[in-house]
């Protein structure tokens, strides 16, 4: 059955090369933890991706209950965590996953740095990776505000002020982030938009480039 569907598609689209390139590429011994236990450091990139997938999924599901509105945001978070079945787990996945993804990405970056893997010809992928790191931090910052509890409000107050301390353009950045003069309803709405649409869009695009580049260039050789 699946074979027939596959053949039908393959006849028309020649999809074999697409997945065979991914499936059949040889993985060298030096990145394989089965051969050298120390090679587990090569897993951090994959784990970052894995947790990112969990973040995207759990985030999508959280928006089924979450309301980005100052009157209801807190109540909706409280509700989805305490009243909805598995709310603790789904919000927990997103909350703790946000920290974990930063940890994994940090470890992945250190691995790449200390193995000198960013050297020619892989400079571009390092740059893309750094941008990914920056986007992830942005996701962390914007997501922190969304529950609209005390911690969220005051930490964002500080973060926005830091952005406002940039010389010359600082005040404009601050107003842009707040969406007005006060940290309030408009801030929450735009942080929500940035957190849910803009940054994930950039993240997915950069991740696509990151993976295409590594497939084109292969993993760096052993030290």
């Amino acid at each position: 059955m699946f074979r027939r569907i596959y053949q039908w598609l393959d006849e028309r689209l020649n999809i074999g090369p697409l997945w065979r390139d991914l499936a059949d590429h040889e993985v060298p011994e030096h990145v394989n933890p089965a051969h050298h236990f120390s090679a587990f450091v090569y897993c951090f990139g994959g784990l970052t991706f894995f947790i990112t997938v969990i973040q995207i999924l759990s985030g999508m599901f959280l928006t089924m209950y979450y309301v980005p509105d100052i009157l209801n945001a807190y109540q909706s978070v409280k509700y989805l965590q305490n009243e909805v079945a598995f709310g603790v787990i789904v919000r927990g996945m997103h909350h703790w996953g946000a920290s974990l993804v930063i940890v994994m990405m940090f470890l992945h970056t250190l691995r790449v740095f200390f193995t000198g893997a960013y050297k020619s010809p892989r400079e571009m992928n390092w740059v893309v990776g750094m941008l990914l790191f920056f986007v992830m931090l942005g996701l962390g910052f914007t997501g922190y505000l969304l529950p609209w509890d005390q911690k969220a409000y005051w930490a964002t107050q500080v973060g926005v002020k830091i952005a406002g301390s940039v010389p010359l353009i600082g005040p404009y950045i601050e107003t842009f982030l707040k969406g007005g003069d006060v940290l309030g309803a408009q801030t929450l709405a735009r942080f929500f938009a940035i957190h849910v649409f803009f940054l994930p869009g950039v993240l997915l695009a950069l991740m696509g480039v990151h993976f295409i580049l590594i497939r084109r260039q292969g993993i760096s050789g052993p030290l």
Binding site: L57, S58, M64, A85, I89, V90, M93
Partner: peptide
């Protein structure tokens, strides 16, 4: 492991 909580979460109002 990933989807069970999320799906149950999603359909909770119905149940």
């Amino acid at each position: 492991g990933i989807l069970t909580p999320m799906l149950r979460f999603a359909v909770d109002p119905a149940l």
